[in-house]
Amino acid sequence: MTFAHDTMLALRAGAALVNSAEPPDTLTDLDDLDAFLAQHPFTGRRDATDAELREVRALRPVLRGFWVDDEELLVERVNAVLAEYAALPQLTRHDGFGWHIHATAADRPLAARIAVELAMAMTDVLRAGERDRLGFCAADDCSGVVADLSRNRSRRYCESGCGNRVNVAAYRARRSAAAG
C-alpha cells in the first residue's frame, strides 16, 4: 500500500515530533523548532514564540498516544483530536504537490495544524488496514516510535540513529568474539 504524499509527510513528521522527546530532548528552544520545521515543513501561520514552542512540545504525548495496539483506542484518540481542533477537511494544492487534504485553516496555530495533519494521516492508516506500519524502535534502550513507510515493511528502528548504533555494536561484538 502506498499512501498519498500528505499522509506520508504527516506520518514522518508525527513520528519525528514524538521522538524529539526521547533523551536527549531535541525540541527545547525556538532554534530546535525551526530545525524541526525545516525538515518537516507545515504551511501556514508561524508565530515563532515560546508559547508556540510550548504548544508543540505539549503535543508529543498526545501524538504518541496514536502508537497503540488497540484499534478502538486509536480511533477514539484520532476522533478526539479531530473534534478538539474542529477539523474541516478541504482539498488544496500548493508547493508543487497535487491535490491533497488540509483539515485546518492556514491561520490556525502550528500545534493545531500538526495535530490535525497526523490525525488525518492516521485515518488513512486505519482505513487502509495498515496499522502494522506503526511500531516502536527495536533498540533495547529506545522507546521511540516508528512509522514504517518502506515498501518491504522492514523498518525496525526510529530515525534517531538507533539502527546504526545497534549495527555498530553488533559488528564490534562479532569482531571481539572472532579475536578472542
Results as ranks from 00 to 15, higher is better:
Gly98Cys: 06
Thr49Ser: 14
Leu53Asp: 06
Arg113Lys: 00
Leu53Gly: 04
Val78Ile: 03
Thr49Lys: 02
Asp95Gly: 10
Gln39Arg: 14
Pro89Phe: 03
Asp50Gly: 15
Asp95Tyr: 08
Gly163Met: 07
Val78Glu: 03
Arg156Phe: 12
Asp141Arg: 10
Arg77Asp: 04
Asp47Pro: 03
Asn167Ala: 15
Asp32Leu: 09
Arg77Ala: 08
Leu63Lys: 07
Gln39His: 12
Gly98Phe: 09
Gly144Ile: 00
Ser176Trp: 12
Val81Trp: 01
Leu63Val: 04
Asp70Gln: 02
Arg153Ile: 00
Ile114Thr: 03
Ala86Phe: 06
Phe66Cys: 05
Asn164Val: 15
Met122Tyr: 08
Trp67Lys: 00
Leu73Thr: 13
Ala139Asp: 14
Ala128His: 10
Arg131Ser: 09
Asp34Thr: 13
Ala115Ser: 02
Arg131Cys: 08
Ala121Pro: 00
Asp132Gly: 10
Leu74Met: 12
Asn79Trp: 03
Ala138Arg: 11
Ala51Gln: 13
Ser160Gln: 14
Val56Phe: 04
Arg151Pro: 09
Gly65Arg: 04
Gly65Pro: 07
Asp141Glu: 12
Arg127Leu: 14
Met120Ser: 11
Tyr85Glu: 07
Gln39Thr: 14
Leu59Tyr: 07
Cys142Thr: 00
Ala147Tyr: 05
Thr92Gly: 08
Ala87Ile: 00
Ala112Gly: 11
Asp95Gln: 13
Asp95Asn: 14
Glu117Asp: 15
Arg153His: 13
Ala170Trp: 05
Ala80Arg: 09
Arg46Met: 07
Asp148Val: 06
